[in-house]
Measured scan of single mutants.
Amino acid sequence: ATNIVGKVKWYNSTKNAGFIEQDNGGKDVFVHKSAVDAAGLHSLEEGQDVIFDLEEKQGKAYAVNLRIK
């Protein structure tokens, strides 16, 4: 899926990971530091509006192509 709108639920820069809550009510999506880095960002803030694509690896959904809304 592409161009999904959501809000950062939480992001821990020590653990280099967090979750994004989908505005469409879907399951929360894992976001890794690699996606944050690829977006040219240093970190994510709780409640921040984002747009992202979903990629599945080994049955788990990940946020990729992250951008700030």
Rank of each mutant, 00 (worst) to 15 (best):
A1F: 12
A1G: 11
A1Q: 13
T2I: 13
T2N: 10
N3A: 08
N3I: 03
I4Y: 06
I4D: 01
I4T: 04
V5E: 12
V5R: 15
V5T: 15
V5C: 14
G6S: 01
G6I: 02
G6T: 01
K7R: 13
K7I: 07
V8I: 09
V8D: 01
V8F: 06
V8E: 01
K9N: 02
K9V: 05
K9Q: 03
K9H: 05
W10T: 05
W10P: 00
W10Y: 08
Y11L: 11
Y11P: 02
Y11C: 04
Y11D: 02
Y11I: 07
N12V: 06
N12M: 07
N12L: 08
S13C: 15
S13Q: 11
S13M: 11
T14W: 12
T14R: 14
K15E: 08
N16L: 09
N16Q: 14
N16C: 12
N16H: 13
A17Q: 14
A17T: 10
G18F: 06
G18V: 03
I20Q: 01
I20R: 01
E21V: 13
E21L: 12
E21C: 14
Q22I: 13
Q22P: 15
D23Q: 15
D23I: 15
D23S: 15
D23F: 15
N24E: 08
N24K: 10
N24S: 10
N24G: 12
N24V: 07
G25I: 06
G25H: 08
G25K: 07
G25C: 08
G26V: 06
G26F: 08
G26M: 10
K27N: 10
K27S: 10
K27E: 10
D28H: 09
D28Q: 09
D28S: 07
D28A: 08
V29N: 00
V29Y: 06
V29L: 03
V29E: 00
V29A: 04
F30C: 07
V31T: 01
V31D: 00
H32N: 10
H32C: 11
H32M: 09
K33I: 07
K33Y: 08
S34Q: 09
A35T: 09
A35N: 04
V36I: 11
V36Q: 02
D37T: 14
D37P: 01
D37W: 14
D37G: 07
A38F: 07
A38Y: 06
A39K: 03
A39H: 02
G40K: 07
G40M: 07
G40S: 06
L41D: 02
L41V: 07
L41T: 03
H42N: 12
H42T: 13
H42R: 12
H42W: 11
S43H: 12
S43P: 09
S43I: 11
S43C: 13
L44R: 00
L44H: 01
L44I: 07
L44V: 03
L44Q: 00
E45V: 14
E45C: 14
E45P: 07
E45L: 12
G47F: 04
G47N: 06
Q48P: 00
Q48G: 04
Q48Y: 06
D49G: 14
D49I: 15
D49P: 14
D49N: 13
D49W: 15
V50G: 00
I51K: 04
I51R: 04
F52W: 01
F52I: 03
D53M: 03
D53T: 04
L54I: 15
L54Y: 06
E55L: 13
E56W: 15
E56P: 03
K57D: 08
Q58E: 13
Q58H: 14
G59R: 05
G59K: 06
K60R: 13
K60C: 12
K60S: 06
K60E: 07
K60Q: 09
A61P: 08
A61D: 08
A61T: 14
Y62S: 09
Y62K: 08
A63T: 02
A63Y: 01
V64A: 06
N65Y: 03
N65V: 02
N65C: 05
L66I: 13
L66Y: 00
L66E: 01
L66P: 01
R67A: 04
R67C: 04
R67P: 02
I68T: 09
I68R: 05
I68K: 05
K69T: 12
K69V: 13
K69A: 11
